[in-house]
Amino acid sequence: MKVRDRHSYAFALVSVAAGLELEGGVIRKAGLAMGGVAPMPWRVPDAEASLIGRTPSFEAFRDAAEIAMRGAQPLSQNAFKVDLGKHSIVRALTLASNGPQTK
């Protein structure tokens, strides 16, 4: 999932890749990577681990987002990316838990 300022811009302000393996309504495996928030794609194993054994929910996804962005040190002009990153993680995990969406 890419979050861009305008659709025409090629670069993402924040991007999130999320994958969940569910079994019996419980998260068995989780993968979470972010782009646009560090010099290279960024994974936070602690955030992934926080999801294991939990049911997919806003609370579980919010907790993972808080862990993923813990210690973030924005520059003077991009502090907004911390909140944007948290919201984007929750959205990407929500989409991952529900499978492909159609209009």
Rank of each mutant, 00 (worst) to 15 (best):
A65E: 09
Y9L: 08
R62K: 15
S15I: 00
A65W: 11
A65H: 10
F80N: 01
Y9E: 11
A68L: 07
A47S: 04
D46T: 02
L20E: 06
M40K: 13
P39I: 02
R4A: 10
F58K: 13
L93N: 06
A38L: 07
G19E: 15
G35D: 04
A17D: 13
R62L: 10
E23I: 00
T102A: 02
K81M: 02
S76T: 06
V14R: 09
K86P: 05
A18F: 04
G36W: 15
A79L: 05
R91W: 15
S8F: 08
G19S: 12
N78G: 02
A72P: 03
A18L: 04
P56M: 11
N78Y: 14
A79T: 00
K86S: 00
F61W: 13
F11M: 05
A49F: 14
W42D: 00
R54F: 02
A96P: 11
L32D: 03
L93A: 06
S15V: 00
R54Q: 14
Y9A: 06
F58P: 00
Q101F: 08
E66K: 05
A38Q: 09
M69R: 11
A96E: 10
A96S: 07
S88A: 13
K81H: 08
M34L: 15
I27F: 14
L20P: 05
P39D: 02
K81N: 04
R91C: 02
D63N: 08
A33N: 01
K103C: 04
H87P: 05
E48N: 08
I52C: 12
A38G: 02
G71E: 00
N98H: 07
K81I: 01
M69D: 07
Q77T: 06
M1C: 07
G53H: 12
Q73K: 14
